[in-house]
Design a protein around this nucleic acid. Structure first.
Length: 631
RNA sequence: GCGGGCGUAGCUCAAUUGGAUAGAGCAUCUGACUACGGAUCAGAAGGUUAGGGGUUCGAGUCCCUUCGCCCGCGCCA
C-alpha cells in the first residue's frame, strides 16, 4: 500500500538506495523536496552532492550510483542518467497511477495526518491579559499565534494545555483595588454596574496617585524654584506616599483574603475576564475560563518556593535580594551545556521581601511540568521578554522544577517570540492622537470595513446583500483577514498592521483564501443541484491536464505542511502552503471545466474539488480561521 | 558599554534551514471571457539579497568585518 505522502515514500526508497550504494554513510539524509520548477520534475533528491563531499567522490558519480539503486517500482518513472541535472540533482517524476492512488489515500477522514505516537503533553502560554486594563493591540498577537500553534499540535494528536497567565496579583492590582474601594465608599462607583472602561480609568488614576515625583522634588530644591513649587511637590509626594502605604495595606488584606477587599478584587477579576473571554470568542480563539491561570493562583507558592531553593543552596542572598545564578550551566546528558550562559541572575525576591514576576514564572514552570504533565512548554510571548524567559527557564532547570519524573530530563521549554505591531508609518501602532488602539475599536473597524467591501462587491455584481447576512459574512471575513494577516508572516519579525492590505480580496490574504474555498463549495453545490449524484466521491483520480497534476501535487503536500508548522512553531508555513494550494486551484478552475466535462473527467475533477475544499477548510481550521459557504 | 534581533524588487512579504535562473502579492504596463463566483488566469517590467572579505561543487542562508535600525540589560510586570 503506497503511503499518502510522496515525501515519506521517496525518502524511504532513497534511504535504502543510500545504504546500498554507500555503506560508509548509511545515515545520510535523502533530502527529498518538491521541485520548485515543474519542468525539472515533480520531486528532487539533493543527497548526491552532500554524499560526494563526505566520501570524496565526484557529485555526478554519487548521483549515478544512487540512480542505479533506487527502487522505482510502480511509484516513479525509472531513474536514468538523464534524471541527473546540474551538479547532481536527481529529478523524479511520479507515475500517474501512483499519483492517483496517493490522492485517493489522502482523501480519508484524517487527510493523511496520522495521530502522533505517542502523543505528548504540550503546554502553550498564549495570553497574558492584566486585570483592570483595557485590551489593546498589544494583546492581539499572542492569542492568535498561540492558538494556531495549539491547534496545530491538537491536529497532530498531541494533548495541548492552554494557559492564560493573567496578571491579577501584586501591588499594581492592590492599588486599583484600594482606589476602587474608596470610590465605592464615596458613592462614585458601583460594584454591580462596574465596566472595564471604569476599571481602566481607575487603574490609571491609581497609578498616578501612587507615583511619587521624588526626582521632581529633588530638582525643585536643587534649582531653587521657590518655596511654592517645593510645597506643591512636597504635598504631592506626601500624598503619593500615603496612597502607596494604603496600597501596601490593601495587598496585605488581599493576601489574607479580607472579605471586603477580596470581594472587590473578585469583581474586578470577573469584569476583566468576561471581556477577555468575549474577545477570544469573537476572534474564534479557543481560550476560555478553564485556561486561565492567574498569578494569584501562585501567590501561596512563592515564599515556600524561594525558601526551598535557598535551603538547597540553589538560590543565594545577594545585595539584599535572593537570586539564582544562571551563568554557569551544567552539562546535559549529551555533554552540552543545558543553556547558553546568562550573565544577569534571576532575581526571585526583592530586598524588601517582595516577589517578582520571575518568582511567579518559576512556580508556573513547576506546575506546568509537575502537575499538568508538560513535556514541552511553549511561551508565545513578545520578543522583548526573551532574556527574562531564558533566565526563568534556566533557574527552573537548576531548581529541578522542570525535570520530568518520567525521563529525569528537563521538559523542553521554548520561547516562540514575536515582534511588535507597527502602524503603516513603521512606528508602534497608535491612534492618530497617539493613544494605544483599543482591541474593541480595532475589531469594530475590521468588521465594519469588511462589511462595506462585501456590499460594494455585491453591488458591482448587481446583487444586494441583506444587512444581517452581510454582517455575518463580514465577521468571518474580518476574522480571516485579521488572523491570516498576522499569521502569514514570520512571527519573529515586527508586523506592519494595515487594514487595507489584510482585508484585500487579492493576494496572500485571508479573504482570498475564503474566496477560494467558497468557489470549491459553489461547484459542489451546483453539482448537487444538477443531480450529479454521489458516485464521483469514489471516482478514480486522473490528472491528464497539467493544471490537474499541479493541484494534485499541491494537495499531497498538506500533511507535510502541518508537520512543518509544529516543527518550527511557524504558522506562516501553513499560510504559504494554503496560498499555494488556492493558487493551484485557481489555475485548475481556469483551465479545467468541471461540470461541463465528459463524465469520466467530470467525476475525477469533482472529487478533486471536494478534496481541495476539505484541505482548505482543515488547514484554515488549524490556523483558527472558520470558513463560510458563500460570500 | 555588554547581549540579542533585523536589513531581500518602489511597497508588504516568501525562499522547504547550504541547492538549480532569489519567488509571490500590491502598484505599473499588455493580453484573455457575455463566465462551474473575473474577488480569476496568462504575460511584461522591476534585484550588486545594506557594503566588503572569507569558507565550497554551490551562500539571501554559515564565519569575520563595517554601516544602519529595533530591542533587552539584578530588585516594574
Amino acid at each position: 500500500m503506497p503511503s499518502r505522502d510522496p515525501l515519506v515514500e521517496l525518502s524511504q526508497r532513497f534511504t535504502a538506495a543510500i545504504r546500498a550504494a554507500f555503506p560508509d554513510a548509511p545515515d545520510a539524509d535523502p533530502l527529498i523536496a518538491p521541485c520548485k520548477n515543474p519542468e525539472h520534475g515533480d520531486f528532487q533528491s539533493n543527497a548526491a552532492m552532500g554524499l560526494a563531499k563526505r566520501l570524496g567522490l565526484k557529485p555526478r558519480d554519487a548521483a549515478l550510483a544512487l540512480v542505479a539503486r533506487v527502487d522505482a517500482g510502480d511509484l516513479i518513472e525509472p531513474l536514468t542518467a538523464a534524471s541527473i541535472a546540474g551538479p547532481g540533482f536527481i529529478n523524479i517524476r511520479l507515475r500517474p497511477q501512483a499519483l492517483a492512488s496517493m490522492l485517493a489515500a489522502l482523501d480519508s477522514p484524517s487527510l493523511g495526518i496520522e495521530p502522533a505516537q505517542p502523543p505528548t503533553t504540550i503546554v502553550v502560554d498564549l495570553m497574558g491579559v492584566n486585570l483592570a486594563k483595557q485590551m489593546h493591540v498589544g494583546h492581539l498577537r499572542s492569542p492568535i499565534i498561540g492558538d494556531a500553534i495549539a491547534r496545530t499540535f491538537e491536529r497532530l494528536g498531541h494533548t495541548v494545555v492552554r494557559q492564560n497567565h493573567v496578571g491579577d496579583w501584586g501591588l499594581n492590582i492592590a492599588m486599583v483595588t484600594g482606589r476602587l474601594m474608596r470610590e465605592i465608599a464615596q458613592g462614585r462607583t458601583r460594584l454591580e454596574t462596574l465596566t472595564l472602561d471604569e476599571l481602566d480609568r481607575a487603574y490609571v488614576a491609581a497609578q498616578a496617585e501612587c507615583q511619587r515625583d521624588l526626582a521632581g522634588l529633588e530638582a525643585v530644591r536643587r534649582f531653587g524654584l521657590g518655596p511654592k513649587a517645593e510645597a506643591e511637590l512636597g504635598e504631592q509626594v506626601a500624598g503619593a506616599t500615603e496612597a502607596f502605604t494604603l496600597a501596601r495595606q490593601t495587598l496585605i488584606n488581599l493576601q489574607k483574603k479580607d472579605p471586603a477587599t477580596y470581594a472587590v478584587w473578585q469583581r474586578i477579576y470577573q469584569v476583566t475576564m468576561q471581556t477577555c473571554v468575549d474577545v477570544c470568542k469573537t476572534l474564534a480563539v479557543n481560550v476560555t475560563d478553564e485556561h486561565t491561570a492567574g498569578e494569584s493562583t501562585y501567590a501561596d507558592e512563592l515564599a515556600p518556593m524561594v525558601q526551598d531553593v535557598l535551603d538547597r543552596g540553589i538560590a543565594v542572598h545577594d545585595q539584599g535580594a535572593v537570586i539564582i545564578r544562571v551563568d554557569e550551566p551544567p552539562a546535559g546528558p549529551d555533554g552540552q551545556p543545558l543553556w547558553k550562559p546568562i550573565k544577569e541572575p534571576c532575581i526571585i525576591r526583592k530586598t524588601d521581601g517582595g516577589f517578582l514576576y520571575a518568582t511567579t514564572d518559576v512556580c508556573a514552570i513547576r506546575r506546568r511540568v509537575q502537575k499538568l504533565g508538560g513535556a514541552r512548554l511553549i511561551y508565545v510571548i513578545d520578543a522583548r521578554q526573551n532574556l527574562h524567559l531564558r533566565q526563568v527557564f534556566a533557574a527552573s532547570i537548576r531548581a529541578g522544577y522542570s525535570i520530568r519524573k518520567e525521563t529525569g530530563t528537563p521538559a523542553h521549554m521554548e520561547h516562540a517570540a514575536f515582534g511588535a505591531v507597527l502602524g503603516e508609518d513603521g512606528r508602534p501602532f497608535k491612534t492618530r492622537s497617539g493613544d494605544t488602539v483599543r482591541l474593541a475599536d480595532l475589531l469594530a473597524e475590521t468588521f465594519g470595513r469588511a462589511e462595506q467591501a462585501l456590499k460594494a462587491a455585491a453591488t458591482q455584481r448587481g446583487e444586494t446583500l441583506e444587512d444581517a447576512e452581510a454582517r455575518e459574512i463580514a465577521r468571518a471575513v474580518g476574522i480571516a483577514a485579521l488572523k491570516y494577516g498576522d499569521l502569514s508572516t514570520d512571527r519573529t519579525k515586527d508586523y506592519l498592521f494595515s487594514f487595507d492590505r489584510m482585508l484585500a480580496f487579492e493576494g496572500n490574504t485571508g479573504p482570498y483564501l475564503l474566496y477560494a474555498y467558497v468557489r470549491t463549495r459553489s461547484i459542489l453545490r451546483k453539482a448537487a443541484e444538477r443531480g450529479m449524484g454521489e458516485a464521483w466521491k469514489a471516482a478514480p483520480f486522473s490528472a491528464t491536464e497539467p493544471a490537474e497534476k499541479q493541484l494534485a501535487l499541491a494537495l499531497l503536500r498538506y500533511p507535510g505542511a502541518v508537520a512543518g508548522v509544529a516543527e518550527a512553531l511557524e504558522p506562516h508555513r501553513l499560510c504559504q502552503y494554503l496560498y499555494d494550494l488556492a493558487g493551484a486551484f485557481s489555475v485548475f478552475f481556469d483551465r479545467c471545466p468541471v461540470l461541463a466535462a465528459e463524465p469520466g473527467a467530470r467525476d475525477s475533477r469533482l472529487r478533486a474539488c471536494a478534496l481541495t475544499a476539505r484541505v482548505l477548510a482543515d488547514g484554515l481550521g488549524v490556523l483558527g480561521i472558520p470558513t463560510i459557504e458563500r460570500m
